[in-house]
Each structure stands twice: as C-alpha cells, then as structure tokens.
C-alpha cells in the first residue's frame, strides 16, 4: 500500500515522483520488499481459494520467495470487491489476484466498472474443466440420452444446479439449452460442493461441476460423468473410479453437443507495474508449477494445464472476454445500462 496508494489517488505529486523511482527501481531482477497480498475474489473453500492457498503453501514450503505470500479473500459482489481493489492499487507491485470467470461475468452482469484491461495479465496457471454430471441412479448413460429425456419432459421440468447466478455454470447451462433445444430450470447455489451434494440427494437432476468439486462423489459411485466441455478429452489416464479415468469421459462435442467452455485460473496484477515485476512473478509461478505438490493438485482436479504468459495470455483473455460477452448477450444476462 503506502506510496502506491497515494500515487493512485493522485494526492501528492511530489510523492508520486518519488514513488515512480521506487517502482521502476534498478533494471536488474526485481524482488518484493514486503509481503505480497494474494487476493482471492471468491469465498473460502471454493476452487480459486483452494488453488491460492496451495500456491501459498508451496511458496512457503519450497522457500520460493523471500517475503511471505498472504491470501486475502475479497468475495463481495461476486468478486467485484477484489477486482476493484486491484484496479485501485495502480502501480502496486506487492499485490496479485487469482481470477476465475467472474473476471468477465461480474462486470457484465452487474455493471460494476472494471475490466481485465484495468489489470496487468501475469500468467495463466491452468484452465478448469466442466463436466456434465447426473445422479448414477438415473438411467442416462450418455449426454444424448439425458438431453432426449429433458426434451421429452418439456421445458423447466429438469433442474440444473450451479454455482451463483449469471456466472459460468449458468452460462454453460444456457449454451447447452441452445445447442440441444431444451430448457432447464436453473437453480443457483452458493458453492460447488453444495451443488454436488444436492445432485447426490436428487434435489436437482444434473450439474456442471468442476472435476474437483464432484470427484469424491464420482469415486463413491453416486454420480455419473456424461461429458466434458473442453475441445479435447482430459489427459489423465489413471483410473479414478473402479472403471473409469478422467480420460474415459467423452467430450461433449463428440457426444453431439456442439459447445466447449473452460474457465481461466490465471494471475493478474495492478496496472502500471514495470516489466521486471511481471517477470519476477512469471518466474515464481514457473517454479510453483515445477513442484510435485502442484502436479498432484492438477491431476486430482483434472485441470487443463495450459500455461501462458505475455502477449499470448493477453490475446487469450481478450478472446475469452468477447466469447463471454456473446454468450451473456444471447442469454440476456448483460446488466441494463
């Protein structure tokens, strides 16, 4: 905070000049001079929170950074609170944020003024998959069988559960509806764990949980995975249940639902930081990715391990943003101006 905060508020031009010197610093490798705040724009216990705390643990255990990395949850307003804070902390090199799809969906759905362009993209850590799940006691073995049943039952008869409203789960639901010509009743819950449980208890008919949110129930035989919304199958071939590995789950595309969706798990930081700072964090996350703990986490959660930085990352984010805008526009989720 401190100098950078004053700088961002434009209160003291004199201090600002001093601050600039401090931020640009020597050209050689930059390093944090105090603890780094790791903002999580979601509540404790969710997917982003788990990942951030894992990163914190890895950094501490392997001593990857001299200063501490401190996760801070800022979940208010579907994550808007966290993003607004990073936006306001222009030039602060001691603040990073982990994103999920709410980077795009929250400003579009609520009209809260921020955009990923207000932030500096650092690195894409991975992409999170979505899987179409049903209760294993239901007779549906393939996506087609399930969607045919949904169609036959008529609009709103089947219930799809998901996390939050006008966010990724509901966007996927709308996309499925459009692709298959069906209509679900979408029921929003507060977290992914609750959704999976509701599905096991048969209070809803299906969900689009992330793998890590539903894997326990899948292994126990309570849930059945129908298809994954990525453009290719998940690469993990070790058996997870007695009969299936993640790789055995077909993509929804090959199963006849022409759509794909993955969720960004990436790192951003405030605008106006020098390239040295960004380089430091890219290097840090490269080291994190090399640890066995990270690799295990990726496999347990069946993540898509695409890693990107620099322009490639920025381009990906820009593309993802326009994709979300289109999806949300069609679904009628954009905030009224």
């Amino acid at each position: 905070m401190g100098i950078q905060r004053v700088l961002s508020r434009g209160l003291l031009p004199l201090v600002a000049a001093f601050g600039l010197v401090a931020v640009s610093g020597p050209a050689a490798a930059w390093e944090p001079t105090k603890s780094v705040e790791f903002i999580i724009p979601a509540g404790t216990g969710g997917g982003a929170d788990q990942m951030a705390r894992l990163v914190q643990g890895i950094v501490a255990k392997h001593n990857l950074m001299k200063q501490a990395l401190i996760p801070v949850n800022k979940s208010g307003g579907a994550g808007a609170e966290g993003f607004l804070e990073v936006k306001a902390a222009k030039g602060d090199p001691h603040k990073i944020i982990i994103t999920l799809s709410n980077l795009f969906t929250t400003p579009m759905a609520t009209g809260v003024p921020f955009n990923w362009k207000d932030l500096t993209p650092v690195a894409m850590l991975s992409l999170d998959n979505f899987v179409l799940w049903v209760n294993s006691e239901d007779p549906y073995k393939t996506p087609k069988e399930y969607l045919d049943a949904v169609k036959k039952a008529g609009p709103n008869a089947f219930k799809m559960g998901g996390t939050g409203s006008k966010q990724e789960d509901q966007i996927i639901t709308v996309a499925i509806e459009k692709a298959a010509g069906v209509k679900f009743t979408y029921i929003p819950f507060k977290g992914g764990g609750a959704v999976a449980t509701q599905l096991v208890g048969k209070h809803i008919n299906s969900s689009v949980n992330n793998p890590i949110e539903a894997v326990a129930q899948w292994r126990a035989g309570s849930l059945r995975a129908l298809c994954v919304f990525d453009d290719q199958r998940m690469p993990y071939k070790d058996k997870v249940t007695t009969t299936q590995s993640w790789n055995d789950i077909p993509t929804c595309k090959e199963a006849g639902i022409p759509m794909e969706y993955v969720m960004l798990r990436g790192i951003f930081m405030p605008a106006g930081v020098s390239p040295d700072v960004v380089a430091f964090y890219i290097d840090l996350f490269n080291k994190v990715r090399a640890t066995p703990e990270w690799k295990k986490f990726m496999e347990d959660g069946a993540f898509n391990q695409t890693f990107m930085t620099g322009k490639g990352y920025a381009d990906w984010v820009a593309k993802a943003e326009s994709l979300h805008r289109d999806l949300m526009k069609e679904a009628g989720f954009l905030a009224k101006p």
Binding site: M1, G2, I3, R5, V6, R9, L11, T33, K34, S35, E37, A68, I70, V72
Partner: peptide, 18 residues
C-alpha cells in the same frame, strides 16, 4: 497470523517494510 491490517493513507510505518 500474516493478516495485514490497515496502515492508513499516509502509512507512517512504511519505513519498517510493512
């Protein structure tokens, strides 16, 4: 506990690195 508390607009403690 590594919980950063509020240091104020004119952080007078910035010299100790927090």
């Amino acid at each position: 506990f590594k919980v950063p508390l509020f240091k104020g607009a004119f952080n007078p403690l910035s010299f100790i690195g927090y």
